[in-house]
Write a protein that binds this DNA or RNA. Structure first.
Lengths: 388, 388
DNA sequence: GATATTTAGTCCACAACGTAGACTAATTGG
DNA sequence: CCAATTAGTCTACGTTGTGGACTAAATATC
């Protein structure tokens, strides 16, 4: 597990420590860095010199006038150098994002496509084109893309990069990672997990929360102390199949009364009473117009979500619950019911019931999280990029 | 979060690395240690010398004849030196265990008392007496007790050591830690969590599992990659209040249809049909005698447990499920139903459904886990014990 | 406006720790 | 009895962080 610590590992960790502080606090003088890290000024100076040389950090040049004494030179993360690629395959779109080391989004590409009717290979080929052209442009702008990550709507085997089962896409056992070769280190992860990480790094959220991704399926990403909880095999967070009512409607997972059957996109739209398929935006319009069927559908979905979340809170104890995906436009009509249900089921037991808030990131959250994850790895181990 | 790494931290980590390998593999020569840790023979020799001097490790004296060449001197964890105290307060007993660094149990004290009818202060005073006499005896045997931990049946605020709410005992906001002063570092934790850790260190179990503690309440401890998952505030694992049926019988937590209402000890005993209170052993006798009411009660409890566990598996993805507490004697009569329910609700979705096994540790599990946790800390950071 | 004070950052001698390889010790195989 | 082999120690050395002296650049005070 833990490896032997030699001098190089010591340096690598201190380098990461300094870079992390710079990343977290925005902009600091060497003296301030020495203070917050507990290292001496000498050591910080050496480490910062290395980081500047590698292009991870830059001096702002501007000196800061504080109280008295010689002003320091602040350093900050250098955005113009290293960047990462974030990719997302979803039911009705493909998204590509390029994010730099300072976590600024440098490039956005979204393409609306119906991926349900296409073959996995074709979908991936299309994404590949989109990604390569984005990489070209980014490289043209002087960025160095060090890696990428791909978000897919369903459980993924992290090791092999095989998408187990993405029911919304109709995918089963698709080896995405080997099909999508971009000539750079890549990995694949569940969309809900990456959207949760996006909330962590790009939202103004807390460091402990449960992100609920409402799409056709309902997934969740749990972030504890700023890092993702994946469970033993990486398949944690399947909130959509938490039991709401044990004898409820049968679910495609084989169970009955799963949350997805009450609050999944299909269930929501179906229960508006309109025959055939009604789009999400139509649903939003109707509920805004106080259409009784739509309002009832929202209330029931909110209740079911509250029930499932009460189980979840009891099991994993999140600090906050962030609703994303389809629940974002519907939040005004379900948020209160979710909170009430949670309150009535947990209020007596818990000192405080986790607040239910809405995500402020759009649908592209997962792609952002994907890129962010790669950036996070660089910040966690900058030594990997140093010239040996 | 991560601290600056100086020379002393480097040494501390390597010391821990060596000690961990010795602890995990039983007995190793310095040469073998050099191989498994990746450190050089020189460094390992120095580290082992320090560990021997501190009394954490000892040479077996016996040399091992392998194949050819000079035989090595094996070292192993020294059991005769450092030990830890494990304490447990439960509804009907107090337990004290002394465990040494090699994880051998050196002393067992259990006292049957009805703690429900006593005041918290009195219970703690009684436990204190029991603990002090155990410490005396252990010290008399040459052991050095470096700390202790206490298991209580209910959620605990780890920081302050206040037991929030232990409904089985009728406790609310009891500052256990400050009441129980034993003149050594102590901490308090949830009984289910510590029982789970006992399973990890004293059972022959895997490193990823969910331990289910069936008592009057039902708790769970989740162990992922050999360490405990506590959630954001340390209140994770409240399996007893996971929803089985949203409109089921009201629960003391304020919700309805919680697992505890179907599979908690009270529910199990109540539903045997016998009026009044029937002891657990009576229940076991009846179900062994195929008493219809008892058999039905077990089946229903097993079903409810299966439903709640299917939600749990979807959320936290454990590798294995270990049933403990009252479920141990009842396992032959509920195990199959739990497995079937899980299988039917998860089988289509998951490649493999986590096996449901029974704990082989007795009721004293939590006390063992408490002591084990202290031992684990010593092994994880032996440098804390070195003479500065 | 000159000087004292304060803070930032660098320089240098030093200490702590792990490494590499020579060296000694102890065993087996021929 | 000697060669081969493996365990463990010893010594010179390299890497890295430290502490304090030193230089640099600002403000406060008179």
């Amino acid at each position: 597990m833990t490896q032997a610590v030699r001098h190089d590992a010591m340096r690598a960790r201190n380098l990461a420590l300094v870079l992390r502080e710079v990343s977290a606090r925005g902009s600091l003088t060497r003296a301030a860095l020495a203070e917050v890290t507990g290292l001496t000024k000498t050591t910080v100076s050496k480490l910062v010199a290395d980081l500047i040389e590698t292009g991870l950090v830059e001096e702002t040049g501007v000196v800061r006038g504080g109280e008295r004494g010689r002003p320091g030179v602040e350093v900050r993360i250098r955005g113009a150098g290293i960047a990462a690629l974030g990719l997302e395959i979803n039911v009705d779109y493909l998204a590509v994002r390029v994010v730099d080391l300072s976590r600024s989004v440098r490039l956005r590409r979204t393409q609306a496509v119906d991926n349900r009717s296409a073959q996995p290979v074709d979908v991936i080929a299309r994404l590949r084109d989109l990604a390569l052209s984005a990489v070209d442009e980014a490289v043209g702008n002087g960025l160095r893309i060090v890696g990428g990550a791909l978000a897919v709507p369903g459980p993924v085997d992290l090791g092999s990069g095989v998408v187990h089962n993405a029911p919304n896409l109709g995918w089963r056992d698709v080896p995405v990672l080997s099909l999508l070769d971009l000539g750079m280190p890549l990995h694949v992860e569940n969309e809900a997990n990456l959207a949760a990480l996006a909330e962590l790094w790009f939202g103004a959220g807390p460091t402990d929360f449960l992100y609920v991704s409402g799409e056709i399926g309902i997934g969740a990403g749990l972030v504890v102390a700023g890092s993702l909880f994946r469970g033993a095999r990486g398949f944690a967070g399947e909130l959509g199949h938490v039991v709401v009512s044990p004898d409820g409607p049968p679910c495609r997972c084989g169970g009955r009364g799963c949350l997805e059957q009450y609050a999944g996109q299909d269930a929501l739209l179906r229960s508006t009473g309109a025959a055939g398929s009604v789009g999400l935006m139509t649903m939003v319009t109707r509920v805004e117009a106080q259409d009784p069927a739509a309002v009832t559908a929202c209330r029931e979905a909110g209740w079911a979500l509250g029930v499932a979340l009460s189980s979840t809170v009891n099991l994993v104890d999140p600090d906050t619950i962030v609703l994303g995906g389809v629940f974002v436009p519907l939040f005004p009509y379900i948020g209160a019911v979710v909170t009430e249900t949670l309150q009535s089921r947990l209020g007596q037991m818990r000192v405080s019931v986790p607040p239910v808030v809405v995500s402020r990131l759009g649908f592209e959250a997962a792609a952002l999280g994907a890129a962010g994850q790669v950036i996070e790895r660089v910040i966690a181990d900058p030594a990997a990029l140093l010239p040996s």
